[in-house]
Design a protein around this nucleic acid. Sequence first.
DNA 1: CTTAGCGGAGACCATCGGGG
DNA 2: CCCCGATGGTCTCCGCTAAG
Length: 470
Amino acid sequence: MQPKPARRQKSALTIHDVARYAGVSPMTVSRVINGEKNVRESTREAVNAAIRALNYQPNPAARSLAGADLVRIGLLYSNPSAAYLSEFLVGGLDQVSRSNIQLVVEKCDEEAAEAAAARLLNSGVDGIILPPPLCDSPAVLKMLAASHTPAVAVATGRPPADVSAVRIDDFEAARQMTRHLAGLEGRRLGRGQGFGVGPVERIGQRPVQAHEPHAPRAVEVQQPVHHPRIEGAQVQQEDERDLAPLGLQRQGPRAIEALGGGRQETGFQPGDRGGVAAGGAARVGIVVGPVAEIEGDAGDPVAPGLQERPGAGADLRGLALGQERVAEPAPRAALGQRGQQRLVAHDVGLEGGGRGRGEAQVAPGVVAERAARLAPEPEGEARVGLGLQEAAVDEAGGRRLGPLQGPQDVAGDAGAGLPGRQGAVRGQVVKGQRDLHRPRRLRQQRGGQGERRRPHRSNSDSGTASAIAL
DNA sequence: CTTAGCGGAGACCATCGGGG
DNA sequence: CCCCGATGGTCTCCGCTAAG
């Protein structure tokens, strides 16, 4: 008979060992591990060196025990696309592993979405991610609202007021990209070929959902090139020859119009000389407009300073040139070089640029990461934009990152509204069923009196706003 | 006085083992 | 059999010290 394992492996490294090695208290080690700010840099380095030297790994069980805050997020999906789900899961798992979050996946048919949502709620999840098409399911959204469970609608066209959302801000993207391109007048950009035309036609009426199987992939334009409502983006006759290979000569104005129904809403100003149409919740970026100067050379710097930023140049090339290949998915490669949180917009970037279609497709995995990060929040919105936006804003000397917003931007203190720790609740946990129960902090009455509010941690699962809203 | 940086005390909870 | 203390690693809260 096997002897029972000791409760504690005496040889296991603990935070105390690291503390002794580094010459600090366990508390300080904990602060360093959790990325808290109030640690002197020299102390932080000493602790990190000790962690490396001892190859210390925090004990997740002990963490859960101490914090009692294991966050569980439900992912309710009915999307039949295995590829989409696969990418979505990878991104989501990346984020939850970084944030010590447990991901619970629940599949359902659209007809059975309510029952599936109820199962998730009963299992005690802290928040639910709703990829399309369930993100727009009124019944599910209503159920989540009634249970006061935070939810994140992914790629929704019309995020409800009381539900967090991760979506692409097509309009702001188009606005900023257009302005940026307009500022490149006279520069050699490159010739695009085989641009795919996203489902732009219907944008003026309502946002087109990426999952809509019948969303138009090409626009059949019947409008004249010179549209009276968008004179700032008129395409000159001579430009049309160059536009011809793009197949966009007549679609540009139309697309621009579709973006907002007119110049005022799209943000185009008199004198703007280009346009970018953005279509669909997961598809952005079609270059239109007077591209007579465009001539292809992938190696050309497309804008001053852009190549100095990792990925930024590739972003623009991938978008503006529609090349057959982009050397590497630079936006993701840049992740971490400039701080994980701040690179969200950059990270999303134009991963699809390598498809040679001149369109940017935001990877579902990246969106899922955003959603997983946002899910436990009571409300908030992360608008996922383009890497180009960051570059453009930076280049203009702006200090804002663009339209991207972190949860705290819109939700205030992300910890507010979340129940904190209270006294013990011994006796409420059924043996063998513990993992089906809510974390302790959520077992407390939401918004109850006298609860200890758990300060928002400053490690990887938070701090977004402070990093972004400069 | 304020703030940064840090440490101590005690809580967290499932499980085990010893004593009554 | 029941009760209760000990155990495990990490956390939050609170308070202290030093520096500005």
